[in-house]
Amino acid sequence: MHPARSVILFTTLSGLGFGLLIWLGFGLPAVTGWVAFVFFVLAYLLAVGGLIASAFHLGHPERGLKAFTQWRTSWLSREGWASVTTLIVMAIYGAGLVFLDSRWSLLGWLGSTLSLGTVLTTSMIYTQLRSVPRWHSRLTPALFLVLSLAGGALLAGQTRWAVPLLIFAGIIQIAHWIRGDAALARSGTTMTSATGLRGGAVRAFEPPHTGPNYLLREMVYVVGRKHAARLRVIALLLMVAVPVICLILPFSHLLAALAVLSHLAGVMVSRWLFFAEAEHVVGLYYGQR
């Protein structure tokens, strides 16, 4: 799949922003006043910034409000509802912390649950696609959720939680890659099932047109896959190893900032691979994957 910048930015930043909101909702750290204000501004900048970035890949962003109508069947529509509800609930909860110096814990827990739900809906947009076997797995929501929790813990300064969560995220990430590498073969969709042609090996002889098309550009993105192995190592180092080392060392603000920035860069590399490595079965019609 084509790794569009807008979608990578969206899933990375929003995942981190909603991850921070999860921890703030649980009162970890238990901040009020100005400190709470800074935490909430950071969370909202990330969450809303990501949502705005996602609008850039739309053909008609001005009709965006219509996306709230089909929550009965569409995970994308559910994500819209989940994110807006979360942002409203957490704004009220945050206002209590910042301006009234009071923590409405029930509202906080509700906001945390909704934040988790928002990340889940984002991941389900990809997980639901049977046409992309690498994504069609329970490991996809697991990866999105644990990365959001780990990144949120890192931003919220919850070192005790962040270290094990980061390591767990690394394990889920590796599992996602291992399962994903065999996913297309295991899906049972092949050139034979795609064309229904029996009685011999099927080879794509001529494509429909001499040039590329939307399908090939969007669904059969192969550029850079040759660097996948190296990028996986880079992603794991930046996303998990460097932040964990920074957190284990004696605390300093510089190391904490390095941990956050390294994690952010690592998640972006991981998301780039998430898209670039994903094979859509339509590629089989073109003899590609």
Binding site: M1, H57, L58, G59, H60, P61, R63, G64, K66, A67, L76, I125, Q128, L129, R130, S131, V132, T189, N213, Y214, L215, E218, M219, H280, V281, V282, Y285
Partner: peptide, 17 residues
């Protein structure tokens, strides 16, 4: 249509452009 492209992703046949 907002042109999000998700339906084209969901179609295994490449029937939508």
């Amino acid at each position: 249509c907002i042109g999000c492209g998700l339906c084209a992703w969901a179609c295994p046949y490449g029937a939508r452009e």
